[in-house]
Structures are given as structure tokens and as C-alpha cells.
């Protein structure tokens, strides 16, 4: 279904949500490189796997630490961070380096659409989020090289 599979890190403290998301990502032809429920594991997994995409919930086992996690993960220029939360009000104005947020409760269509957007953007194509009500961008997409892999 997808041209190039994305390597995805899932940062989510609800085991059931994480598991179902993993199945969904598999259906969509992507690879889940890891699941983390707390901030320390998430940051360590991010460093170990350098994923293409990280889905980050705000509320984790150790509190509302998802914002820190997003900041740490987006420090890797290879990783595109997307928040996935029912608590979008906690996201800071600069989105902590994330490109957008998928609002919970989400549908499979919105997750698929958000990933398509991220893949297009990483490939340097014109990406659109039209019709994806549950996916909101941090700001107007930048044209810079920020999210294309260096090296």
C-alpha cells in the first residue's frame, strides 16, 4: 500500500492503544521499531533506533512528559515527530519540534492520512492535510530541509 515503509516509534502509555496502533501501522505497511510507555524509555529508544516517525502521546506513565520526549526526539534531524493525544491543550506554541498533532480519539483513516502527509513531506513532495479533520499541523509547512535526512 505504501511505497517506502516508514520506521515508526510509538510513545504511548496505554498498552491497548499501542498494540492496536502497531497492528494498524503493520496493515498500512509500516514498521514499528519500538513502543515506549515512559519518557526515559522513549528517549533511549529514539536514540537507539533513530526512527523516521515518532508518534508521541503527551500523558505518559511518568506524567505529562510527552512534550519533553518530542523535544528530545526531534533533536534528531532524521526523525519527524507527530503528537497523538487527547490533551492537545498541553502542546506548547512551538510544538516542541513536532510537525503536528493527531487528536484522540482518532480513526484509522486519519492516522493513514497523517502518515501519507509525513511521507510526502519527507520525500520533498507537496503534502496536504485536506479532509483530515483529526490531524492539525504545527504551522504552515516549512520549505526548509529540516525534515529531510542529513548525511
Amino acid at each position: 500500500m505504501t511505497e517506502t515503509p516508514l520506521r515508526i516509534l510509538v510513545v504511548e502509555d496505554e498498552v491497548l492503544i499501542a498494540l492496536e496502533l502497531e497492528c494498524l501501522l503493520d496493515d498500512l505497511g509500516h514498521i514499528t521499531v519500538g513502543v515506549a510507555g515512559n519518557s526515559a524509555d522513549a528517549i533511549a529508544l529514539g536514540q537507539a533506533t533513530s526512527p523516521d516517525v515518532a508518534f508521541v502521546d503527551i500523558h505518559l506513565i511518568d506524567g505529562p512528559t510527552g512534550v519533553e520526549v518530542a523535544r528530545a526526539l526531534s533533536a534528531d534531524p532524521h526523525t519527524t515527530v507527530v503528537f497523538m493525544t487527547a490533551n492537545a491543550k498541553r502542546i506548547p506554541d512551538d510544538f516542541a519540534g513536532a510537525v503536528g498533532v493527531i487528536a484522540k480519539p482518532y480513526s484509522e483513516r486519519v492516522v493513514a492520512g497523517a502518515l501519507r502527509y509525513v511521507a510526502d513531506r519527507r520525500a520533498g513532495l507537496a503534502a496536504t492535510v485536506e479532509g483530515l479533520d483529526g490531524f492539525r499541523l504545527a504551522s504552515a509547512p516549512e520549505t526548509g530541509e529540516r525534515h529531510t535526512p542529513v548525511r
Partner: peptide, 9 residues
């Protein structure tokens, strides 16, 4: 919202 996501999952 979180519970709805859990139920759906």
C-alpha cells in the same frame, strides 16, 4: 477521549 480510544482499540 482516552477511554473512547481504548474502547475502540
Amino acid at each position: 477521549k482516552n477511554n473512547l480510544q481504548v474502547i475502540s482499540s
